[in-house]
Design a protein around this nucleic acid. Structure first.
Length: 598
RNA sequence: GGGGCCGUAGUUCAGUUUUGGUUAGAACGCCUGCCUGUCACGCAGGAGGUCGCGGGUUCGAGUCCCGUCGGCCCCGCCA
């Protein structure tokens, strides 16, 4: 039977005691990691959040307590009182920080018993993820899992310390808010008091933080949950946490340098990593041209080489056609890649197929020849140009993409990352930040047949591109900036529009009617007329940052109770159906699709 | 919505293809007993299976076929 704690208040945690503490009377509490019962003496490894200490039950010292200890099993919860003693010579455990001492127990309380857990509570074992998630509270007891959450705490602590020191106010914004047309799908919450009306959970506190700038709070931050009802990925959960910031009277260099200082502070505090240099800054155009992606991993080379110019009118019709019709022909020179097998090349071809590439041409540069299915189409002059532009040398592998620019850039951009993984070009534990700036303001949505905002509709255009809004809005660039870490987008922001006329003009360009703008964003347009200061800000993905810093493969590893790919929680079994009365009260009726019967 | 991988003792897996066939194995864990210096304790013994679920083919299905549920990775979606 479980006992109450009584007077056994712990004096130390399970990672604390050392040789200096010998002869002290201490009380430890924790879980039973392992029991080694020798019939006579019994050893128990007692575990808490901090570590493990060996406790000993010796029948010659205390037979009553020793007898009681026979019933102890894995994961029982104990409080033990005893003396810190030196371990006998030759029995010191060098693998344990507390391995030089042990606790000779004089009093034992079994605070709780435990069923045999569905998996062993220890590191270095393989457990199916669905089992881990169902018993997440047990999974979180494993030291390597818990480690990520300790780091997460240290990151958010460092963020708060830094921003508090810079004069930021931590202000909360509503979780029950208004559904907005642009952006991701909203999570909706029905209003009981207002039949037929719904709140939306915030995709981010974007408009509220802008309102706070109009209010004159000047510098705001919040570590806040955001919600997006879109499909999940290993780095995407439906609810996630942003470090959300907004500042008044700033331009983008101010926001970027402050963010940079904060990231450096975090890495110094948490990982003891110092960044001496400023983070590199690259325009969107340069990122796409050199790496094919707007979030390039710049820890390795394999840069894209644009061959579109020389391919116009070349002997290989596929390339010539693409090049002359405004498409892109790009190559990557994989140094030493001539050793790739036919299967490697097939794998890579199907890999780029994921991103819309219809094929992938290749040339192996060997001692004797250019080995390739396409080399026969080129004349000597063309081969010479390819060699010169790509810097091809014996032993290299040239990979080609030719298609619409978007397809070539994305497929070769992702291919570049995949090649780096295969070739082992990146070490875990290296960190490389990059700012990407000068994004296009708008993007044409072929389906909706209108322009949509790349960042969001409140992003200011570059001053020098303002004149393009009337003539060629698609060419206007914005005051938006993204922060990239190791090829992952970890944050982004912009200088906002603080003038009502410009905001209205952007809504017009986005084909958001006056009525819609006024019904969805009326409060913003109003506020901009009451002395809105110039302002801008940024939001960072806390989960992604901690994931990268802790070396985790998935964002789930740094979220205490994450959801599966079908957005369900295996522990609570959310989401679930509700009682009909609850629906009635909300004036809701279900309209489920009928199951196909065949 | 689409593509791929996976589902067998509590857990991790083998067995499934190429050959459908008696009683589905291993390791760890668990239980019982023994054991006074272990730390992955040791020794002896034992229990434990809806082969994800449903249907079909067959004399016979873990194995073949169809459907379905669930987990993971990716595309679409999402900044």
């Amino acid at each position: 039977m479980a006992e109450s704690l009584g007077s056994l208040k712990r004096t130390h945690n399970c990672a604390q005691l050392r040789v200096e503490d010998i002869e002290k009377e201490v009380i430890l509490t924790g879980w039973v990691q392992r029991r080694r019962d020798h019939g006579g003496v019994i050893f128990i490894d007692l575990r808490d959040r901090e570590g493990i200490t060996q406790v000993v039950f010796n029948p010659e010292e205390n037979s009553e307590v020793h007898e009681k200890a026979h019933g102890i099993r894995s994961e029982y919860v104990l409080a033990v009182k005893g003396q810190v003693v030196n371990r006998l010579e030759g029995t010191v455990n060098p693998n344990l920080p507390t391995g030089a001492i042990e606790i000779l127990v004089s009093e034992l309380k079994i605070l709780n018993e435990a069923k045999t857990p569905p998996f062993m509570i220890e590191d270095g074992i393989d457990i199916a993820e669905n089992l881990r998630l169902k018993y997440r509270y047990l999974d979180l007891r494993r030291p390597s899992v818990a480690k990520g959450f300790v780091m997460r705490h240290r990151v958010s602590t460092a963020v708060r310390a830094f921003l508090n020191g810079q004069g930021f106010l931590d202000l909360e914004t509503p979780m029950l808010t208004k559904s907005t047309p642009e952006g991701a799908r909203d999570y909706l919450v029905p209003s009981r008091v207002n039949p037929g009306a719904f709140y939306a959970l915030p995709q981010s506190p974007q408009l509220f933080k802008q309102m706070l700038m109009v209010s004159g709070f000047d510098r705001y931050y919040q570590i806040v949950k955001c919600f997006r009802d879109e499909d999940l990925r290993s780095d995407r959960q439906p609810e996630f946490t942003q470090i959300d910031m907004e500042l008044s009277f700033v331009d983008r260099e101010d926001v970027m340098s402050l963010t940079e200082a904060m990231m450096k502070h975090i890495f110094r505090e948490v990982l003891d990593v110092d960044f001496k240099e400023s983070f590199p800054v690259m325009t969107y155009e340069e990122a796409e041209r050199r790496f094919g992606l707007d979030k390039p991993d710049i820890r390795f080379g394999l840069e894209h080489i644009d061959l579109s110019g020389m391919m116009k009118g070349c002997g290989f019709k596929v390339f010539a056609d693409v090049a002359s019709k405004g498409g892109l022909v790009k190559a990557i020179n994989v140094k030493g890649g001539a050793t790739f097998s036919r299967k490697d090349l097939d794998d890579l071809t199907s890999y780029v197929g994921n991103y819309g590439a219809k094929g992938m041409a290749w040339i192996k540069v060997t001692e004797s020849e250019w080995q390739s299915p396409i080399v026969k189409f080129f004349n000597d002059d063309e081969i010479g140009q390819i060699a010169e532009k790509t810097g091809a040398e014996v032993g290299d592998l040239l990979l080609f993409g030719a298609d619409k620019p978007a397809v070539v850039n994305e497929s070769l951009g992702m291919l570049r990352n995949e090649l780096a993984r295969r070739l082992g070009l990146v070490d875990k534990g290296t960190y490389s930040f990059l700012w990407v700036t000068d994004f296009p303001l708008l993007e044409f949505d072929g389906q909706a047949k209108r322009h949509v905002a790349i960042h969001h509709p409140f992003t200011a255009p570059l001053d020098e591109d303002m004149h393009l809004l009337d003539s060629e809005p698609g060419k206007a660039r914005s005051k938006a900036y993204d922060l990239v870490l190791n090829g992952s987008e970890i944050g982004g922001g912009s200088i906002r529009i603080h003038q009502q006329e410009l905001q209205q003009k952007i809504f017009e360009l986005l084909h958001i009617s006056e009525e819609e703008a006024s019904s969805k964003f009326g409060f913003l347009l109003d506020a901009l007329q009451y002395g809105a200061p110039p302002h801008g800000g940024l939001a960072l993905g806390l989960d992604r940052i901690v994931m990268i810093m802790s070396g985790a493969d998935s964002i789930r590893d740094v979220i205490t109770f994450p959801k599966t790919q079908k957005a369900s929680c295996l522990m609570t079994e959310a989401p679930s159906t509700v009682e009909p009365e609850q629906l009635t009260e909300l004036n809701l009726a279900l309209n489920l699709p009928k199951k196909e019967t065949t």
